[in-house]
């Protein structure tokens, strides 16, 4: 029969945890479909930044990709409620909200022409900088990277009074070297995979948010697949997504030790950076995103309710909230 080729791009460099698991996924699909469905991988951003990959998916050069929240926001922005800064206290809360919304979000992707095969995660996002950052004031005098065209980053920086330097992720490493920027945000694993940590000395100990991700293919491609291959792609996509989430969590924890070993210093925020200030900041950013309908008010409300219930239940059960 015919061979279906799925050209699949990602920013993850070859040899990283993410890429290794993706390769494994490709291998399993190939074996189980007896060569009828094969993956061609384009790792390390060779197909460009996520918006470029999306354009290439629309013109059918590529059929899928492993995306971060940034790319996902361009396909179905409500899913990025999972990435609102300072919203979640721990990883269980993220999992809870994600589970709650999975069905709804899958439908949302479908309606916009994409299929969400499985979730991924990039992990807790920290600030990496060449100078220690202890307060928002410190950050205002730095050259802070903004992933060009990211509304959440934009909203966050706007709420904090920071004017960032917008750049494609492809240009971050060289721009760190040339001094065009001196402060970036990334998960520990990402900072190591992309070598950004070699250009910075300090890490903020408080994460900004938990970076999400997803394995996504175009609906056009899935629709043309025979039913059995559709099922195979969905089933394996889901299970390898779970595998990716689990492996990312383990490796991010390891990466923190690795970064410490390499001499990067974790910076605690000043006394002035109170919880109240962070909360106000989060609310300002969330308000802006809700107002522009990037994240629908209903999704945000549901999330807040869900978290309140969860925290309340935990408090009454006697588990101390972290």
């Amino acid at each position: 029969g015919t061979t279906h080729v799925i050209k699949f791009a990602t920013l993850a460099p070859p040899g990283t945890t993410w890429m290794n698991i993706l390769e494994e996924w490709g291998q399993e699909v190939k074996t189980r479909s007896k060569g009828r469905l094969v993956f061609k991988f384009y790792p390390g951003g060779v197909q460009g930044d996520e918006p470029d990959v999306l354009k290439k998916m629309r013109f059918n050069q590529l059929q899928g990709g492993a995306f971060t929240g940034y790319g996902i926001g361009r396909m179905y922005s409500p899913a990025r409620v999972l990435e609102l800064p300072f919203l979640f206290n721990d990883i269980d809360e993220v999992d809870l909200v994600r589970r709650h919304f999975t069905k709804t979000f899958q439908q949302g992707f479908h309606d916009n022409g994409y299929e969400l095969l499985g979730w991924m995660e990039v992990g807790f996002i920290h600030m990496f900088s060449t100078e220690p950052i202890r307060s928002l004031e410190d950050m205002r005098s730095r050259r802070v990277w903004l992933w060009q065209g990211d509304p959440i980053g934009q909203a966050f920086f706007q709420a904090s009074g920071i004017s960032p330097v917008p750049l494609s992720i492809i240009d971050v490493y060289t721009s760190l070297s040339t001094g065009l920027i001196d402060t970036v945000y990334a998960p520990p694993l990402g900072a190591i995979a992309l070598q950004w940590f070699t250009k910075t000395r300090y890490i903020s100990s408080i994460p900004l948010t938990n970076g999400m991700g997803g394995l996504i293919v175009t609906r056009r491609f899935v629709d043309r697949l025979p039913k059995d291959l559709q099922a195979l792609l969905r089933e394996t996509g889901n299970s390898y997504g779970e595998k990716l989430v689990a492996a990312t969590r383990v490796d991010n924890a390891k990466s923190i030790d690795e970064l410490k070993k390499r001499g990067l210093e974790f910076i605690e925020p000043d006394e002035g950076m109170s919880d109240a200030e962070l909360l106000a900041l989060r609310n300002r950013a969330a308000d802006a995103l809700i107002k522009s309908n990037y994240i629908p008010a209903s999704v945000f409300e549901q999330t807040r309710k869900l978290l309140d219930q969860h925290r309340h239940a935990r408090a009454t059960a006697g588990t101390p909230a972290p």
């Binding site: 205002r140 005098s141 050259r143 903004l146 060009q148 934009q154 004017s163 960032p164 330097v165 917008p166």
Partner: peptide, 14 residues
């Protein structure tokens, strides 16, 4: 703007 006022015009870069 960057050196004198610690501010940049984000859209101007683009």
């Amino acid at each position: 703007a960057r050196n004198a006022f610690d501010a940049g015009i984000t859209q101007a870069d683009t």
